[in-house]
Design a binder for these strands. Structure first.
Lengths: 109, 109
DNA sequence: TTTGGTACTTTGTGTTGCAAGGTATTGAAA
DNA sequence: TTTCAATACCTTGCAACACAAAGTACCAAA
């Protein structure tokens, strides 16, 4: 049983997730589980099944690269790193986001 | 040939269109073409093929109702009206939107 | 050697936005 | 009267996306 509120929030998250990922990775490298934690801390909750394909898409687009690193325990981690192209895309997204905030504000006057 | 920027903006629009529609209709009744113009004025461009199904969905969810009205010229217009349920949903969306703006801000610090 | 924790991946489903094309009404021009 | 342009509404097929659920793999401790 899902609340209306959950639906609303889930719908709105669509389309800004890529922006969130690039933003997180622009500050420091991270692997999927740690990205999930950051998103959770920012109230932008997503699940594994959403994040992994998204990271792969962004890597295929050349926005991210990655490297393997040993974990203190458990299997190795895939650390993602933002590329130059990714930073350029992030700039685009900053502008697009600001524009959308303005648009909503003007509609919500 | 579509620019990266268009893709970015198109993706971000997902999920907030319903919010925009309810917002517009909360101020006054409107028919599809006039809603398109308002969205265009707010830089939230969409096309007919997006808007019509969306209005029908919202009507089926009980968020909107409509009535026919003669046009000064051309076929009659379908004026959409927001319902009480629609206004409740709009309140939800206001809250969800504000939360998302905060989330992005905290990630983009 | 089995168990539990960590981490990455894949599959199937439903929703959404969009391009493109279609239908219907009206009034004015040919 | 027929044709045309403008207005308005609707439908179909497609691709992208978020998500639930299930699966695979690695490691260390019991």
């Amino acid at each position: 049983m899902e609340s209306t509120s959950d639906n609303v929030r889930s719908q709105m998250r669509k389309g800004v997730l890529e922006y969130c990922i690039l933003s997180i990775l622009s500050q420091k490298e991270a692997y999927a589980s740690s990205i999930l934690e950051e998103l959770k801390a920012a109230n932008m909750l997503v699940v594994e099944g959403t994040l992994y394909p998204l990271l792969i898409r962004q890597k295929n687009q050349g926005l991210l690269s990655y490297r393997w690193e040993e974990s203190p325990q458990g299997p190795p981690r895939k650390y993602y790193v933002i590329t130059e192209k990714g930073r350029a895309q992030l700039s685009e997204m900053d502008a697009a986001w600001q524009e959308m905030v303005s648009s909503i504000e003007s509609l919500r006057k």
